[in-house]
């Protein structure tokens, strides 16, 4: 994917900047971006190591087994391919909980851990499996009940409605739109599966 998207971004923006004479901004942004990436990696290093450690502790207890049991219907529906993989299910459930609570800092490390575990079971090492795609999509869908960043911005700008009214309405839209998005994804996922099954039947 990035093999296509990345050069497109670079070519479009660099040539437009040269064409419009906007070169000073472009030069500044190149160096700014690299140092931004380093800053982000350093802060990620902290949270990722912390949460990896925490999940390791959790995975040795029976606590995650309970969580998996609780979320089992959802996980079974979303990830039919990993029905037998208890370890992966544990990591996915932790990621789900972090996402729903709006803990972005925790959700990413937990998600990356789950991706690595799924990769271990992946037959084609260079291609995403269906479960991985579902997992990535659910992580990009931003299913959160408390949109912490937005609330912070709105309060700092002195929103008169950053009381119950505003938050519940933001929440309502949030749920509404993310569920809308999820429906689309499920449809596409199901379609993909049907195509695969058809191919499978044809082959045998």
């Amino acid at each position: 994917m990035l093999n296509i998207v990345w050069p497109i971004f670079i070519i479009i923006s660099f040539s437009y900047a040269i064409f419009s004479g906007n070169l000073e901004n472009l030069n500044a942004s190149i160096f700014e971006s690299t140092s931004d990436a380093v800053k982000l990696s350093i802060s990620l290093l902290g949270t990722i190591c912390l949460w990896n450690g925490i999940i390791k502790i959790a995975s040795t207890t029976t606590m995650l087994d309970r969580l998996v049991k609780f979320l089992n219907p959802v996980i079974k529906f979303l990830y039919p391919e990993i029905r037998e993989e208890k370890e992966i299910q544990k990591e996915i459930s932790m990621n789900m909980v972090a996402n729903i609570l709006g803990l972005g800092n925790a959700a990413t490390p937990l998600g990356l851990k789950a991706m690595r575990s799924m990769q271990k079971k992946n037959v084609k090492k260079d291609t995403l499996t269906n479960s991985m795609i579902m997992f990535i999509i659910l992580n990009t869908a931003s299913i959160q009940i408390i949109p912490t960043t937005v609330i912070a911005i709105r309060t700092s700008l002195g929103s008169r409605q950053s009381n119950s009214n505003c938050i519940s309405s933001v929440d309502c839209y949030n749920l509404c739109s993310s569920s809308g998005g999820n429906m689309y994804k499920t449809i596409i996922e199901v379609q993909e599966k049907m195509i695969r099954r058809r191919k499978y039947v044809k082959n045998y």
Partner: peptide
């Protein structure tokens, strides 16, 4: 780098 360029251009 790519996204920074896209924004600043």
């Amino acid at each position: 780098v790519a996204i920074g360029a896209l924004r600043s251009s």
